[in-house]
Amino acid sequence: METEMSRTLKVLLCSDDDGLMVKTIKNALSNKGFEANIVLVRDQHDADTISKEIVDADVVYPDKAIITKEMIESAKKTRLFQFGTGYDTIDLASAGERKIPVCNMPGITAQSVAEHAMYLVLALARNDREYGLEMKEGRWNRGVGVELAGKTLGLIGFGNIGKIKARIAHGIGMKTVAFRRNKEKGNEGLNFVDIVGFDHLLEKSDIVSILLPLIEHGSYRTKGIIGKRELEKIGGAGLGWLINISRGPIVNEKDLIESLKSNIIRKAALDVYEMEPLPENSELRKLPNVILTPHIAGETREALVRRYTLIAENTIKVMNNERPLYIVKELQSIF
Rank of each mutant, 00 (worst) to 15 (best):
M1C: 00
M5W: 11
R7A: 00
K10H: 01
V11F: 07
L13E: 10
G19I: 07
L20R: 12
K26L: 00
S30P: 03
S30Y: 10
K32R: 14
A36P: 15
V39D: 01
Q44R: 13
D46T: 14
T49G: 04
K52W: 02
D56I: 00
D63M: 12
K64M: 15
S74L: 06
S74F: 00
A75I: 04
K76R: 15
K77Q: 09
G84Y: 02
D91C: 12
A93Q: 09
P101M: 05
V102N: 03
N104D: 07
P106V: 13
A110T: 11
Q111D: 12
H116P: 03
A117N: 03
R129W: 13
E130N: 14
M135H: 13
K136Q: 09
K136H: 15
K136Y: 04
E137N: 11
G150Y: 09
K151L: 05
G154L: 06
K165N: 09
I168W: 04
I168G: 01
K183L: 10
E184W: 04
N191C: 09
D194R: 15
H200G: 11
S205W: 00
V208I: 12
K223M: 10
G224H: 09
I226H: 03
G227Y: 01
L231R: 02
I234V: 13
I245F: 07
D255P: 04
K261I: 07
I265V: 13
A269S: 10
D271T: 02
N281P: 04
N281G: 08
L292R: 10
P294C: 05
I296M: 08
R306I: 01
R307C: 10
V318C: 00
N321E: 13
P324T: 04
L325N: 15
V328N: 00
E330V: 03
Q332C: 04
S333A: 11
I334D: 04
